[in-house]
Amino acid sequence: MAEIKQVTVIGTGVLGSQIAYQTAYSGFTVAVYDINDEVIGKARDVTFPGLAKTYLAEVKDADQEKVDAALKRLSFHTDYASAAAEADIVIEAAPEKLELKEQIFAELNKVAPERTIFCTNSSTLLPSDIAPSTGRSDRFLAMHFANRVWQFNTAEIMGTPETSPEVFEQVVEFGRQIGMVPIPMHKEKAGYVLNSLLVPLLSAAAGLAAGDYADPKSVDDVWRIATGAPLGPFQIYDVIGLNTPYNIMMSGDAEQQKLGAWLKENYIDKGRLGMASGHGFYDYT
């Protein structure tokens, strides 16, 4: 089986950009794709230089030479053909919408080499839901990262019954090579390990605030003081960014969709998208 050397990351949102930079920082050549020149230009000129500064400040072994070398390993693309032309592995980090992910993988399958492994960073969708669109179910699986990958460095790896065991093990090893702690999952489960635990917590917190039982700061105070956790649920919302939880809520039942509508009306529509935007449940400016 071919060694993984060339990596393609689809999407330059919060997690996509982190996955790409962490992979480049670990010594891999990374092609980064997004939908148009404006979006990819912002990633190139703002997002990735910002990540370099963050690594310099927060990663123990980081120095100027390492963070600059990582930036030089990145290339930027707005078409799938050039982004995936040499890819040994593609990691998709697009918004949490099944139809969008299906469309992305169908297009990638037309242009990526036959050897290329496809991974989704989906946080809730089962890989078997997406697999038929990839055209290579034996070389497709999920590789789910947590936000702030340089600090919370888990990579939950979940295949389908059709995923090749050799491909699965290769992706586990790739996770180690990019500084992650691989978490192999023995069978499919929506939400994996992390979100099976985290999503109910965040939903319960949103229900308390949306129902006007307690304000977000009070909910966070109770959680941190009573459990010793470093962050409360609304602080976690801000770290994740509010768009991803919103998309998950709107894919849920009627009660979840009500919480999504509350989140959108009171925060997202007001530009309060989380820590990355400077404002979420808290202000970071």
Rank of each mutant, 00 (worst) to 15 (best):
I35G: 01
V9A: 00
A261E: 15
A70G: 02
E96F: 04
G50V: 11
G159Q: 00
G50T: 07
D68L: 07
G280E: 06
F48W: 14
T78C: 11
S26R: 09
L108N: 01
S82N: 15
L74I: 10
D215P: 11
K5W: 04
S75V: 10
K97H: 10
A254G: 11
T285N: 12
D138W: 10
Y284Q: 04
E38A: 15
N247V: 13
V67D: 02
D212V: 13
G278R: 09
L208A: 11
A190I: 12
I240W: 06
D37E: 15
P233M: 10
G274H: 08
R272L: 14
L194I: 15
K110V: 09
E38T: 15
H279C: 06
V32Q: 08
F28S: 00
A52H: 00
V9M: 03
S218L: 14
G135E: 05
P182Y: 07
Y80D: 07
L202W: 10
Y213N: 11
Y267V: 02
F76Q: 00
K258P: 09
L100S: 05
V193G: 01
H77L: 02
S218F: 06
I178M: 03
W150P: 01
M249A: 13
V7E: 00
G232V: 14
L194M: 13
A206M: 15
Y80L: 08
V193C: 03
Y284M: 08
R44K: 15
A254Y: 05
E173H: 12
I236K: 00
G274C: 04
A146W: 12
R115F: 04
K258G: 05
W150Y: 13
Y213T: 14
T244Y: 02
D45C: 06
S203W: 11
A69E: 14
P200T: 08
S218R: 15
A85D: 14
Q257P: 10
L141M: 08
S17H: 02
T54H: 08
A62S: 11
D138L: 02
V149C: 04
N121G: 11
S196P: 08
S75L: 06
P245I: 14
Y282T: 03
E58N: 15
V14H: 13
L141P: 10
S251L: 10
A142P: 07
S75I: 10
V111L: 01
Q151G: 04
K189W: 12
S277T: 14
N147S: 08
R272S: 07
Q257V: 05
E3C: 03
A43C: 06
N121I: 03
L208G: 04
V39E: 04
P161M: 06
E3Y: 02
G232C: 05
A69P: 11
